[in-house]
């Protein structure tokens, strides 16, 4: 069976309204007992005296979505999840805005919490996405994940 590859990318920031709508949609799934949510927010780091005002994200989207589909399958086979939703921003996201939303649900808390943590780590490490840190004076440097 050919699986449809989900688009994880959103142009611009992920809004609190989108996140709350996403939570609301799960009220009909009454076998769920636990949700775990990770939200990544753009931080105004101070680098050599210059403040980061935004991060501009680009991705090799075809490869990122193929890789995410593999990660999704591995996470579902490892943890007993009801569902998992991933949203990553593309384009310029200002400091203070949300750029990553990972949402896992399960019957009991451990699976949701552990899966959420693992998937965040794998997104940061494995997906071909690049963040360009834009400073207040419009110069930039490329973000390096720790």
């Amino acid at each position: 069976m050919e699986k449809k590859i989900k688009n994880i990318f959103t142009e611009g920031a992920i809004t609190p309204v989108f996140i709350s709508d996403s939570i609301s949609k799960h009220s009909t799934k009454k076998n769920i007992g636990a949700h775990s949510i990770f939200l990544g927010q753009v931080r105004n780091d101070l680098i050599d005296g210059k403040e980061v005002s935004a991060i501009e994200y680009t991705s090799y989207t075809d490869m990122a979505m193929e890789k995410m589909a593999i990660i999704r399958e591995e996470i579902f086979s490892k943890y007993s999840l009801t569902c998992m939703h991933i949203h990553h921003s593309l384009g310029k996201i200002n400091a203070g805005e949300i750029c990553l939303f990972v949402f896992t649900s399960s019957a009991h808390r451990k699976a949701a919490i552990d899966a959420c943590e693992e998937v965040v780590e794998r997104i940061k490490k494995e997906l071909p996405i690049w963040g360009k840190e834009i400073f207040v004076d419009n110069t930039h440097q490329w973000k390096v994940n720790s």
Partner: peptide, 10 residues
């Protein structure tokens, strides 16, 4: 051909 530096998403 795609040139891919270490990624820095999230």
């Amino acid at each position: 051909i795609v040139l891919l530096p270490p990624s820095s998403g999230g």
